[in-house]
Design a protein around this nucleic acid. Structure first.
Lengths: 134, 134
DNA sequence: CCTTTACGATTACGCTTGTAATCTGAACGG
DNA sequence: CCGTTCAGATTACAAGCGTAATCGTAAAGG
């Protein structure tokens, strides 16, 4: 094939990862490489999917450049090409930008107000703040 | 009509608001009520949309129960039915859950690490923390 | 060898989203 | 009264997504 006219044929992980795809990525971030069957073991149970679904998602992620495949006998092993931290960072930034004009403090205020912060969270954040000030 | 057989026929804003729809909501959160034309004035410029697009988004939002309409002469005025803070809270929570296992501290750590926190942010967060501890 | 099986690849299909054109009916100008 | 115009409503349509069945083929077992 190779004739795919995608805008970023040769590039690393740029295209957006969907929600379902994200679940698959999580499995592979936890451990990699894994075969499709192994990924399914994890994910199919969590989300009630069937094998074909996982296959599709894996393929799409490969297409998007988010996963690499290594042949292993007659099957493939999948490995993430983008780091979890990069994904998480990107998503967080998107949210902060979309909802809080790019400022993180309002996000924090919101979480605080919504009582989405546990005691532990607060303690840890304080610790982080201390650390940052040094 | 009232015959909408959605799972939450009588409820406030439950259904998910898409990205494009969100832009429209923002315009109406900033000021409301507004007519379609007024919303378009704001949004069409920001996002390069045309009037019909805005109309569609407004309709979908009404369908979803996110906007109310008030007849005003031969047109409608649109008013948000869900508060911005509710939306923002929901989205934030979704993100924290999806990406950080529901704990906010890791999100914070991430933002800190990514240097997405300005001096001001940090100062304000400290202030908020102080307040919360009281 | 030939059949079963276990893969990845291909195809499918309905839903949502982004973006918009067209239709229809009411108001307003003459 | 009648045509023009300006609303909302209806329809459109391609792309992305969630979910999956089917196909083709290579391995593995008898």
């Amino acid at each position: 094939m190779v004739s795919r006219a995608g805008p970023e044929a040769t590039e690393g992980g740029t295209e957006r990862i969907s929600d379902a795809e994200h679940a698959v990525m999580e499995a592979l971030w936890k451990r990699s490489p894994q075969s499709a069957a192994e990924v399914c073991d994890t994910v199919c149970q969590e989300r009630g999917w069937s094998m074909p679904t996982v296959k599709t998602l894996l393929s799409r992620l490969v297409q998007k450049g988010a996963l690499a495949t290594t042949p292993d006998g007659r099957r493939f092993l999948y490995t993430p090409l983008i780091a979890r931290s990069a994904y998480v960072g990107g998503e967080s930034k998107r949210l902060v930008e979309r909802l809080f004009g790019g400022r993180a403090a309002p996000l924090f205020a919101h979480l605080a107000q919504a009582e989405a912060l546990s005691e532990d969270d607060i303690a840890e954040i304080e610790r982080l703040l201390q650390e940052m000030k040094k």
